[in-house]
Design a protein around this nucleic acid. Structure first.
Lengths: 144, 144
DNA sequence: GTATTTATGTAGACTTTGTCTAAAAAGCTG
DNA sequence: CAGCTTTTTAGACAAAGTCTACATAAATAC
């Protein structure tokens, strides 16, 4: 009766297919990175991805990690989350959702967007179109 | 019948007092920086402040600009806006409000918060307290 | 006032995140 | 396989921001 909070979005053996479907040639490096993003933790910085992917054996260069994360973001497989002034997080949950950001710990926690409502936003400046609404609730450790 | 969008928050001659009231010793450098923030444009990066303050004559060092902006933010005179992955903006409007962020131009536009409502946010993780809710509507130039 | 202590400011080295470049390697296509 | 395009790479580079060790200024004591 329990729902797992976040199941792997894509199983390991379907990753290459998942990339192909999104118009991305599944090279070895891209699959390695995708496996990390789509089967494990949710919010990772480029640096963390770089470290994890090369943990056992040097497989992927820094440039490729940055290129690949940027590519995945452009293709919509991953979402950039900008909450920390010093680095970008990549979120493999691309469903509409928001975040708690714990300023003290750096922790990022999902808030399901289906239950949150934002009302009465003014009209967009003319000549522009929206590409996303990000709500970040900044939190910190409460001093008793 | 026109309303100015944003009047200077603090007039030049009251700046030292404004700092003092907030528990900040008004040194020459701090007053110089405060003048830029509180009587002119709204959203500036540290680099922009550094450039403006030293435009005519080298007055303030880089370290001091960063220290001062951080101090002002901690004391609540200014608000850090994190929307651009490469730099922090300092917003001299500290009233509750949100932002349109034009990804193509880097432009940041205020959205008055009094009219916007956010509902049904879940409870905060235990042991934490909220320190702010930031809504960023990312926009881009619409391709006709 | 002058001495002492404390708070600020500074230049410049340094760190970190991220980008760029030029060349190598890998994938295609005929 | 020859000739092309795409991807990957190491390492140089860039930009934002921090740190350090010392100088300056301001506050306090005497």
């Amino acid at each position: 009766m329990e729902m797992v909070t976040q199941q792997p979005l894509v199983e390991a053996e379907h990753i290459a297919e998942h990339l192909r479907v999104h118009g991305i040639t599944p090279t070895q490096q891209r699959v390695d990175i995708a496996e990390i993003l789509f089967t494990r933790a949710q919010h990772l910085s480029a640096d963390q991805v770089l470290e994890i992917v090369n943990r056992d054996k040097a497989l992927v260069s820094k440039a490729t990690v940055y290129n690949t994360l940027g590519l995945f973001a452009r293709k919509g497989l991953v979402r950039e989350v900008i909450v920390d002034p010093s680095k970008v997080f990549y979120d493999s949950n691309v469903e509409g959702h928001h975040h708690f950001y714990n300023v003290d710990t750096g922790e990022l926690i999902d808030i399901d967007a289906t239950q949150v409502t934002i009302e009465n936003l003014p009209e967009l400046p003319s000549g522009t179109q929206a590409s996303g609404v990000d709500v970040v609730v900044r939190i910190c450790q409460s001093k008793s």
